[in-house]
Design a protein around this nucleic acid. Sequence first.
DNA 1: CTGTGTGCAAACTCTTTGCATAAGT
DNA 2: ACTTATGCAAAGAGTTTGCACACAG
Lengths: 127, 127
Amino acid sequence: MRTAGLRPTRQRIALADLLFAAGDRHVSAEALHEEAQAAGFSVSLATVYNTLHQFTEAGMLRIVQVEGARTHFDTNVSDHHHFFIEDENLVFDIPSGRVEVKNLPEPPEGTEIANVDIVVRLRRKVR
Amino acid sequence: MRTAGLRPTRQRIALADLLFAAGDRHVSAEALHEEAQAAGFSVSLATVYNTLHQFTEAGMLRIVQVEGARTHFDTNVSDHHHFFIEDENLVFDIPSGRVEVKNLPEPPEGTEIANVDIVVRLRRKVR
DNA sequence: CTGTGTGCAAACTCTTTGCATAAGT
DNA sequence: ACTTATGCAAAGAGTTTGCACACAG
């Protein structure tokens, strides 16, 4: 954290604990905020946003934009793709190395590919 | 339009004209609203939103969610994917039939794939 | 005429910002 | 002490909604 030029404040440490304790996670700012409250320490929502963005700039998180409005932050910063269950606001990784994209067209004149995002939208089976 | 159970009102007709006159288009509500104003007939932004959603439900448009916040509506309702130039808010189709996804993993127990969206994010080459 | 559509403004959701206070080093 | 972070509340962007008036059938 220090190497990223970020002061290890209480709030940042607490949020980092929540984020990186378990394996890969996908959180929205609001979800993380609630989680922090539930865990008993108070952080303002604004600070959660700030912190998430600072972590993102430091390369510790990446942003996954799977739906309008809400932004999801992913603790897995390697190159991979996502499942998304619409009705539940749930994002999770597609096991990496599995998906392969073939025949990507050349990008138009004067542009280059920044990255390729694949989102597989899921729905619950109604039985 | 009538077959979709939608009354062909002035506003709807005018918006449909703008949308379907030329080939495939990708518009945001705001962009279409401005375009209507520029074309000399007044439609309220709320009506543009309503109309776009009604057209979407009628299967005449599809929603492309490539970035946070803004929603893009696509007049090409066939199965295809998109290029997106971030800094210009520009969405356009990847020539269909070209891209192919291999090795898609099985969706988790109890879910099924609703659809697969591929967004190729582009950036302008700086020369 | 009757019912659906439109326009306006207010409400809403998610996110960002400004500024005084608090906390790290 | 000096500087950077935090918290709050207000502002902002995009979208939706409620309700009176207008218009298509």
